[in-house]
Design a binder for these strands. Structure first.
Lengths: 148, 148
DNA sequence: TGTTCATAATTAGGCATCCTAACAGTTAGG
DNA sequence: CCTAACTGTTAGGATGCCTAATTATGAACA
């Protein structure tokens, strides 16, 4: 076993511990929030870029289509999104935010971002910089892990 | 609204996006793994430091006691942990890894760490350094978010 | 000593999220 | 055409988490 590999393994170990904490913290953020769960907010947020098919929603969220269907149905029932049929392909369904959905996604996202920002503002400048430069790295790691 | 706050909000926004991805990636890692779910592995891993009460397990995992009871019962049924009564307090239950539990926690953790390590090894050195220095920052952010 | 309050864990009931399998409708290629 | 591939939904089931109520034990104190 070479040294390079051992170091990567050790880094992987601590990274995985951080991942675990991320999951629990995210759940905690959801608990106090009665309006939208984390999954629902993620779904609405991705629709802010424009309409998306059910299968696109599923892929973006990292879930199977029946799960996306279920969430969309729930959000539709509460008036946050609507289904339209795709003019180019009548099998497909395009999901869009309603006005109420737009309002909700902005309001809830701002509220949650403020909770995080309050913590970030108390970080040492060096730590803040470290966080800032790590985020794109995290994203690229997640992308690669998803592919496998 | 001052500039400092705006920047923190923007950083919070991208950090939250990374958090969301972390949740889904973790779920993905669980799906392929039939032996233990993420929660179960976390539970076993924390027991590797020694026996713990049900309430300690719950606190470490960030869940309520009934949830810990449920997970412990399930793992007990599969022979990974056992319950012992606390000699100092007969209300309490101490949970410990069995031999099979030890074996499982080492095997599964190594497997998952290798999957992450494989990605880390392909990072640019600068990115790897960025990841390394960000992990303690992440941990401290999570700690503070949990307190609130 | 005996009452009362606090603590540890479990049980019961319920909800959100996810999955696979099976199905219906639509499109597209041979 | 006719079959294979694709889009989305429905049906059924598992997991993980929660709150409220319950059982049993411990601790404090009049």
């Amino acid at each position: 076993m070479n040294k390079e590999t051992d170091e990567a393994l050790e880094l992987a170990r601590s990274f995985r511990e951080a991942l675990r904490q991320a999951v629990y913290v995210t759940r905690r953020l959801d608990v106090g929030e009665t309006e939208l769960t984390g999954t629902q907010l993620s779904l609405l947020t991705l629709l802010a870029d424009g309409g998306a098919r059910v299968s696109d929603v599923a892929r973006s969220l990292g879930v199977r289509t029946p799960t996306a269907t279920e969430q969309i149905t729930r959000l539709e029932g509460r008036g946050y999104v609507r289904r339209e049929s795709d003019p180019d392909d009548s099998r497909a369904v395009v999901v869009r935010l309603t006005d109420g959905g737009w309002e909700a996604v902005e309001r809830v996202n701002l509220r949650r971002n403020r909770a995080i920002a309050a913590v970030i503002e108390r970080l040492e400048p060096a730590d803040r910089t470290a966080l800032e430069s790590a985020i794109p790295v995290l994203t690229s790691i997640y992308d690669r892990l998803r592919e496998e």
